[in-house]
Each structure stands twice: as C-alpha cells, then as structure tokens.
C-alpha cells in the first residue's frame, strides 16, 4: 500500500534531492560538462521518475502528480521559462508506462527505455527553446553537440545508479 509505506514521503524527498543534485552537478563539474562546444546535461530527475515506473510493480504511485511538481520547480527555479518541463516530465512517466506494457522491465530493457526518454526530453526542450528563440542552434549541431554527449553521460549514470536506486526503492517499500 502506497499510503502506508515509507514511499509516501521517501519518493518526493528523493525526487527533489535528485532535482537539486542536477543543478549542483552542473555547477561542480561545469568545466567538464559545459566544455564548449559539446554540452552534457545530467538528468537525474528523469532517472528517478523512470526508476519509479520500473520498480512500481504492484504498488501504484502518483508519479504524474510528482512529475508535474518537479516540472514546475524546474521551470521556475532553473530556467525561468515556464511551460516546458511541466509537460515534459509527466510525458516521460506516461511514455515509460506505455513502453513497459510491451517490454518486461529489467536492467537492459530499462536502459533502452531510458535512452528513449532522454532523447524525448532533450528533443522537446530543444524544440521549445527554438520556438521562444532561446537558442539558434541547428538541428544537426543539436544532435552532435548536445544529444549525443548527454545520452552518453545519462546512460553511464543509469548503469552506475540502477542498483543503488533499486535498493532505495525496495527499502522504501
């Protein structure tokens, strides 16, 4: 039962911890991550949400609500442009939920799902930034300089953090 478990408080705390860690990682490793022209963005929030779906199993959690909350904080606090991540994060939860209907969730299939999710996050934020003229980057430059390094970083993080996060989720249940 979600209502009675530690998950009820543990999940949001973990979510916001990951959200703030994203910013702190970007700040601490800014020399390495933002070495121009290629840019790596850490998306630990997305990892936490995707893992929420993967380890949900027989305990449904209000993931979409928390995804919206994380999206609001991300938009207001980090970017200052409201209306991008508030829709992207719930979409990620939805996409992941649809995908695991077809593939049974395990370490490797999770890696593939996470690959798709990061691509969606980056592509949609790119489109949104192009629309409001936050960037003038061309599509091909986006693929090479942003999407590829970001995917590499986040898949590596997935591999490193999958088992620790699973441990945390099992403990919270």
């Amino acid at each position: 039962m979600y209502r009675l478990s530690k998950m009820r408080f543990g999940f949001p705390i973990g979510l916001f911890l990951m959200l703030f860690l994203d910013g702190s990682i970007s700040q601490i490793f800014s020399v390495h991550l933002f070495s121009t022209p290629s840019v790596m963005i850490s998306h630990l929030v997305v990892l936490w949400l995707v893992c929420g779906v993967l380890f949900e199993e027989n305990m449904p959690m209000p993931l979409v609500k928390w995804a919206i909350a994380a999206g609001i904080v991300f938009d207001l606090y980090y970017t200052g442009i409201f209306g991008v991540y508030i829709f992207v994060f719930p979409l990620i939860v939805y996409v992941t939920r649809v995908t695991i209907k077809y593939i049974s969730p395990n370490f490797l299939s999770g890696l593939l799902i996470y690959f798709i999710d990061i691509t969606i996050v980056e592509a949609l934020s790119f489109v949104a930034s192009r629309v409001v003229h936050m960037t003038a980057m061309s599509g091909s430059a986006f693929l090479v300089n942003t999407l590829a390094p970001t995917l590499a970083l986040n898949l590596a993080m997935y591999v490193v953090l999958y088992f620790p996060i699973r441990g945390v989720y099992n403990w919270l249940k």
Binding site: F20, G23, S26
Partner: peptide, 15 residues
C-alpha cells in the same frame, strides 16, 4: 556565491 547552475544546454545561467 554561486548556488547552482541551470542544467540545460540552452541557457548558460547560474543562480
């Protein structure tokens, strides 16, 4: 002091 940096490739922004 810089608290954090926006994790986004479109905005080079610190808080």
């Amino acid at each position: 002091a810089v608290i954090t940096r926006t994790p986004s490739s479109w905005q080079n922004q610190v808080i």
